[in-house]
């Protein structure tokens, strides 16, 4: 029951982007298409789950005063791991996301969950929390990416349904702000 709650809260009730407004930089930067948003979300999920597990395991070994640098080292290691793995095995996606992968280190969600959840809870709960939060983040990014892709390039998951140029603003940065703003507004409307 409790674990289920931990898992589902990341999707709507405490969604990192849409409710807590954390991690907006990659949200705005990488959601030019559904597939980009989804891969960024999954990369973040990987880091989030791994760092939550490790941090909840070692939380008692770390003196309070150096906990932030320790967490950052742990997070940065996992980010570098996924960075290298993507370079090696997903070169196409790495090319578009390249710049934003190292930035996961400073993504507020990861450090936020480490500090707010993993450092106070057990391994299993932290793992579930990271997974829920990460997938909620990935879902939000994918939907935003899909909306921008449909409007901006008239395609979805790379499939072009009309052979024409879309409304280019939605591929550019201003479109990300428009999309995110209305997305948040809609979620708020139904979250009440």
């Amino acid at each position: 029951m409790n674990n289920w709650k931990n898992f589902t809260k990341g999707f709507i009730k405490e969604n990192p982007v849409l409710v807590m407004l954390l991690g907006c930089c990659p949200t705005l930067g990488t959601t030019t298409s559904a597939i980009n948003g989804l891969s960024m979300g999954l990369a973040t999920t990987f880091v989030l789950v791994c760092s939550n597990i490790v941090i909840s395991l070692i939380k008692n070994l770390i003196p309070d005063k150096v906990r932030i640098p320790s967490y950052i080292v742990v997070i940065a290691s996992f980010v570098t791991v996924i960075d290298l793995l993507m370079q090696a095995y997903l070169p196409g996606i790495y090319e578009t996301l390249g710049l934003f992968i190292p930035l996961i280190v400073v993504n507020c969600i990861v450090l936020g969950r480490a500090e707010a959840f993993a450092s106070k809870n057990g391994v299993w709960a932290s793992c579930v929390d990271g997974l829920g939060m990460g997938l909620g983040y990935a879902l939000a990014l994918m939907i935003l990416g899909a909306v921008r892709e449909i409007l901006g390039s008239l395609s979805i998951f790379g499939w072009q349904f009309i052979q024409a140029d879309g409304i280019l603003v939605f591929v550019l940065a201003p479109g990300a702000f428009f999309g995110l703003a209305y997305f948040i507004a809609v979620v708020r409307r139904f979250n009440k």
């Binding site: 070692i58 008692n60 070994l61 770390i62 003196p63 309070d64 005063k65 150096v66 640098p69 320790s70 080292v73 742990v74």
Partner: peptide
Amino acid sequence: KKQSSLINMVLTLFVI
């Protein structure tokens, strides 16, 4: 929880 003494902090960071 470990104490935040200098030696503890240095050691922890070093090991990590």
